[in-house]
Design a protein around this nucleic acid. Sequence first.
DNA 1: ATGGGGTTTCCCATGATGGCAGGGTTGATG
DNA 2: CATCAACCCTGCCATCATGGGAAACCCCAT
Lengths: 150, 150
Amino acid sequence: MNIGEAAKATGVSAKMIRYYESIGLMPKVVRTGAGYRVYSSNDLHTLRFIRRARDLGFAIESITRLLRLWQNRSRSSSQMKSVTTEHIGALRQRIAEMESMVRTLEHLAKHCHGDLRPECPILDDLAKPDTKAAPAKARSRPGVFRAVRA
Amino acid sequence: MNIGEAAKATGVSAKMIRYYESIGLMPKVVRTGAGYRVYSSNDLHTLRFIRRARDLGFAIESITRLLRLWQNRSRSSSQMKSVTTEHIGALRQRIAEMESMVRTLEHLAKHCHGDLRPECPILDDLAKPDTKAAPAKARSRPGVFRAVRA
DNA sequence: ATGGGGTTTCCCATGATGGCAGGGTTGATG
DNA sequence: CATCAACCCTGCCATCATGGGAAACCCCAT
C-alpha cells in the first residue's frame, strides 16, 4: 500500500503521514527498493488512531502518549483517563475564555445600531482611554484549538 | 516615550509593538536621531485599541479593518457591526466544535474505570478499525483561537 | 519508449508570539 | 571623563500543524 492509498484509506494526508513519521509519532515504515513507503494494515490502524485523536483535539504530544499506552500491554486505564481528563480541562478552559469573549461582543453589538451613522459602542469600547490589560492567562497549547484538519 | 514605557503603559510587549509596526498595523512612529522609536499619546491610544481587540479574540486582519473604521469619520456603524458579528460567528462555531469534542471525551471518560486494569473504552474508540474521517470543516483562522497573550 | 501520475526530499509559508545574539545609546555614578 | 547597567535596535530562529511547490525519480500502461 502506497502512501497515497494509505492517505485515502485513513483520512490523513500524505503530507501529514510523512510529517508524523519525521517527528517520530509514526514508526518508520518499510520501503520498497526505490524508496517508496509501504503501509501495512497495522500502519493503517495506527494512522486512523492518530486521526481520531486529532479529531478529538488532542495535541501531537498527547497523541504520542496515547499511542504508547495503546501499545503497552501493562498500561493502566487510569493513565488513559488522566491524559483524557487533562485534555478535557484544557478544552473547557479555552471554551470558557471564548464564551467570555462572545458575551462581551454580543453585549457591545446589541447596542450598536448597525446603520449608516458612525457612532458605535463597539468602537467606543475598544477606544476607551484607560482600560487595563486582561489578566494574564496561561499560554495555551495550540494543539487544543486546531483539531480541524481542513 | 520609549518603546519599553509604551509597552508597560499599554500592555503590549515591545516585541509585538515592533511586529505590529512591521506588518503595517501600527503606523510607523517617529524616531530619535539614534533610531529609538518615540510614542505619542495618540500612538498609545492605538496600541490600547489593538490590545483590547486582541483580548476579544479579533485576528490581526480584522483589527486592521477595525482600526481603519475607527479612523474613518465617514464610517457606518453597520460596518463595525458586521466585522463584529462575523467574529462572533467564528467564535461560536469554534466553541461548538470544541464542545462536541468535550462531549465525546466525557462520554468515553465516564466509562473508563481509571484503575490499574488496561481495558479502556477511550482506547477502544480511538482504535476502532473502521471509523470515517470527521466531516471536513472550514479551515479556521488562527487569530480566533489565540487572543491570549501569555 | 513515452507520458501521466504516482513518489521522494527539501524549502517556504502561515499567525502571533517569545527568545537570543550582537551591536549601539543613554543616563547616572564614581 | 570613564564605566556600567539598562535600555534600544535589527535580524534570525522556534513554536505547532498544515499546505504548497519544485526538482528529481519511479511505475505502469499504451
